[in-house]
Design a binder for these strands. Structure first.
Lengths: 243, 243
DNA sequence: CGATTTGTTGACTAATATCAAACTGTGTGG
DNA sequence: CCACACAGTTTGATATTAGTCAACAAATCG
């Protein structure tokens, strides 16, 4: 699959792009590169001249507070453009790094700039992507703000399952998620020890199992119930009225 | 001051808009309305046909989790367009309400749609606003995720002070902020009782004082130090290199 | 002015953090 | 093929932060 195809597919999902738009997307120069796990893509303070599309693998955005603790802000999967905002916000306010071996596509800001100038519907589709990004942040705030530890964990995995499924990366209730408990604790605002205990409890109750880079949701109902997960904030198109 | 002027001024802050752009903004039809404190502007699930500009007063966005607890996601002040995202994300994923008496301007989506179609630089400026909105969410995640209670409080007020100052609503280290401790607790992911104790401690140490709808920062240094506040995520233009 | 909301206090509890040690699995070089 | 190193996970004991509940005081509002 051509690297731009993953982009086209993603943007087509909700915006109706014309054949011309599709062609313009297809001719976007993308430089593809394979990188190891735990490699920084951009750091806080950087002024990148490219945006990054995840073609394969996992990445996360994070920020470290002045007390030295790192907070993970989001996880990103194939099809995501985690630093799209850098097109307008020139100086990075957070870090972006892989959490697994990944293949990334890099697109020059200048090329994107031209593209959104000539193809308004692509501009809208990209704008919309950044708005969904923000919607996910909002739910993340709710997660760390008001949910108890187990609900946080369940919610995070429920969200990821939904997003993985939307790009065909979940078969049944199982999907890849190569993450350590320490990283999970940084995403959820918990200690690693507590994350471990929450995971064990879920395993014992046959609710879900996160092991060896794989998540298996054993009891979807229960996961949804304990987390109060409602996918509408992800704006994944269904056949219902447009979201 | 004409209601559109507040918009023009805000968007001009960072984007260089042409005279034509300014004129287009000025001729935007805005319906102005005064509303009481604690009135809902839009609710989760709504499909608004307008966006809302705050001309005067305060608003907040919030979301209630399935356990019944409400999380406040952001505070909004004069010049903000807190539901700009509804232009592309048709169904609200959160609530927007005033927290003080306010005067609001309402702009039809259709008018904005036309505007961004005809004036690309306005489109860019608005897009950028939504990206800053997201940057503020990211910092909010860090706040509730990894900072202890007093740092959370200090950070929230430091941010607000900066934003108020940017629109000329802070004189010295004092600014208006009509909020109850219960609301603060919902913003910070704490209990109201704990918020009360944190505020008292700050008062006792002459760091800051929040009383009678006013915040007085007595010791800016201390507030910045305890919260680790760094304003760069707000992307408020300075004379430095563009952010 | 009474009524209601908001702020304050104390006693007690619960959730989660911290620390330190041990255990497991996996890959590497001898 | 074994021994070792390393990263990640698990465990137990203890500490701390922040939550809960309930009562009361002080503002604020109509």
């Amino acid at each position: 699959m051509h690297p731009t195809e993953i982009l086209t597919r993603r943007l087509r999902v909700d915006a109706d792009l014309s054949e011309d738009d599709a062609k313009a997307l297809k001719s976007l120069p993308i430089q593809v590169r394979d990188v190891d796990a735990d490699t920084n893509i951009v750091r806080e303070g950087d002024r990148p001249r490219v945006c990054c599309v995840i073609i394969k693998g996992f990445a996360c955005r994070s920020k470290v507070a002045s007390n030295g603790r790192r907070q993970i802000l989001s996880f990103h999967i194939a099809g995501d453009i985690p630093d799209l905002q850098s097109l307008f916000l020139k100086k990075m306010d957070h870090d972006l790094a892989t959490i697994s071996p990944a293949t990334l596509g890099f697109i020059e800001h200048s090329a994107l700039d031209r593209l959104i100038g000539t193809n308004p519907s692509i501009a809208r589709a990209l704008w919309r992507e950044t708005l969904i990004d923000a919607a996910i942040f909002r739910e993340w705030i709710v997660n760390v703000g008001v949910r108890p530890a187990s609900a946080r964990m369940a919610h995070l995995l429920a969200e990821l399952r939904e997003r993985m499924a939307a790009v065909g990366l979940a078969n049944g209730e199982e999907f890849e998620f190569p993450i350590t408990q320490a990283e999970l604790s940084e995403a959820l605002g918990l200690s690693a020890v507590h994350v471990n205990r929450v995971l064990q409890a879920f395993r014992a109750e046959h609710v879900l199992d996160l092991q060896r880079n794989k998540v298996r949701i054993a009891d979807v109902e229960k996961v949804i119930e304990t987390s109060g997960f409602d996918s509408s904030y992800l704006y994944i198109p269904r056949n219902d009225p447009p979201c």
